[in-house]
Design a protein around this nucleic acid. Structure first.
Lengths: 204, 204, 204, 204
DNA sequence: CATGAATGAGGGTTCATTCAT
DNA sequence: AATGAATGAACCCTCATTCAT
């Protein structure tokens, strides 16, 4: 039973979604500061005033955009981490999930990294905080998965938080590779490589 | 005997250096687009016109800044990678060197990541190319060190390029940690952790 | 019935016209380079941004100004030259028309001469070409009128193009006189003098 | 006995002349407002400070330039008008002299017209007045030559001032022609045409 | 006396945001 | 509710001019 929204409301939501999609495209392509509100409004085929009816200013629009996408992604990854498999499987699934997510949406990826990796210092405001919390939550979940692995004697007795940090670094690094040259460095094909390297290290 | 420069020239160089330092501080704190040339000039205590005598425009100033720092860092790391130690030592030294470098200059670190990790898509133009080449060179060097490790049967027979990518991801990830909370996550203290994790993996 | 334009459009047009009028006054009084866009906006009682909504830059505004006026004048003169009277009458009418036109608008006159007589080398760009063509067309028409006069044995067998050049010089020269001291040298009153001198020369 | 100037003075004069020559080239090519003092200094191979030792500001330099050239030209034309030949000869000589002068120096010609024909409203200041006086003097001389022609019954009983105006218009008009396309409309070759048209008119 | 580094007012232009219709 | 004309602060940059060396 989802259709409780009156038509008016549904229309509004659709408009909002269109605006966000257009903004994502433009921001991702040209960067926050090189996209004007007029440009967004025009490409989304709305009047500038209408855009401002939906988002109180440019920053707000940007924040809404990032938070929507980040929420979506983190939910997916969170789900993977919540499944009660053995640790090795969970980690492999996590690495794969990250691959699938980003393969779907390159534009978002760029913004996501800009935000989660401090490059966002370009854009003002409390975004850092909000998205930071979201990210922190994910890392915590990952940490507790790894903790479980340690307790079950599958993983070594290293700081599980730092293990999580390491895994994030590993996967992101390969994602950058893929972003720069998707054909030469297909992320998905490298999932086993990443997993293997993480689990076994590089030493013979 | 370096003082062959006439005093006028030395003064000029000092002024240039001061301007660059001020710009670094501001860019690092607020981001390229949120810093105006007037702001830089004022904080550096020069007239706006003087700033433009030294750098033909804002982008040029930014580029000079980035390239100077990036050049410096890459040289240091390159030196470490060139020393003819056994692979394990070299890698440990590399990880340490990265730590020392960045411990010296947080502001630069932020810009450096913004540039080498694509968050720079905010700033236009040829910078990507120039700094990209520099970075590529470094990764290549790292790759050849790892190759050596493989040939000498110290490292496993994995793609050495991907090993390098992994190591970069690992170290950067810990650097971010440190950037966010230097006291709780001292990078230098973690050098052994990183090295160990990279070499041995996390599996028991 | 011309009022098919919606009120909004009519207002816009009126605003544009006001801006152009203000710009004409200022340019004519002080010269292109000594008038700032801010000055124009302020005198026209619009915000600077509004000015830029109508004209994409200063040069564009200037060009719009010149071309509008030049088009108008050349059309009037062209009409006179097209009427099928005998040559002498046509020439007299032409000289008179020039008088009437310019008597109406001294400011424009200044700009017009600046542009048609090369003083415009101060302002860049394609204007020269556009207005040049317009002027050329006019001179051609004048030439063909004079040619007709020659064929009908009313005028001497001189190069008709040079005759046209001579007539232009004659009239413009008197216009300058008038511009400098309108009371002492009323152009209109001199129309017979000019006509007579052109037709009969000064020799007894 | 001209060498009374000490060497220092002579050098200074030479420098001044070089500066003026460079400025003339640049102004003529690009227009007053599109040439910077630095540009002049650099092209003349002097320091900017030196330029300012010779001319107290840009306007002053421009004025010095114009006045020097205008003075020179007007002197030549004045000499022609002072010779005691019959009117027709004098007029023909005058037209020829104008040709010779300008053939020598196209750059100056452009500036000269900009100044004597009101296009100079671009540049501020008292120049108008000074050069205006010079020009007025010339026209007066021309007028008195024509007056003489009338008194001696060679010329018709028209207002001699207006005759002068007419002659100026005629010659200038042909000069413009020549400026635009020197090959197709050689001024010198047209001296007889101009003279003839002025004296005899175009009527059969 | 020549030099050229330094100055800063002022110019052209953009764009986030408002508000009358 | 939707529109888009109007706004003006703020930006990047130029260049005439000064003055310590």
């Amino acid at each position: 039973m989802k259709k409780k929204l009156p038509r008016r409301e549904r229309e509004k939501l659709r408009h909002r979604t269109e605006m966000l999609a257009t903004a994502l495209d433009l921001f991702s392509e040209k960067g926050y500061h090189n996209v004007s509100m007029h440009e967004i409004a025009e490409k989304a085929e709305f009047a500038i005033g209408t855009l401002y009816k939906f988002f109180k200013n440019k920053e707000d629009l940007y924040k809404a955009l990032i938070m929507a996408k980040a929420g979506e992604y983190h939910r997916i990854l969170s789900d993977v981490l919540s499944e009660k498999n053995d640790v090795q499987t969970t980690l492999k699934d996590y690495i794969s999930a990250k691959a699938k997510i980003f393969a779907d949406s390159v534009p978002t990826l760029r913004l996501y990294f800009a935000e989660t990796h401090g490059a966002s210092f370009n854009i003002k405001a409390g975004l850092d905080q909000d998205i930071g919390k979201l990210y922190e939550k994910l890392v915590k979940q990952l940490t507790s998965v790894l903790e479980r692995g340690i307790r079950s004697k599958v993983l070594r007795e290293l700081d599980p938080y730092y293990m999580a940090v390491a895994l994030e670094g590993l996967t992101n690094s390969f994602l950058f590779c893929w972003l720069e040259d998707p054909d030469r460095h297909p992320y998905e094909a490298n999932v086993p490589v990443i997993t293997d390297m993480f689990l076994n290290g590089v030493l013979r």
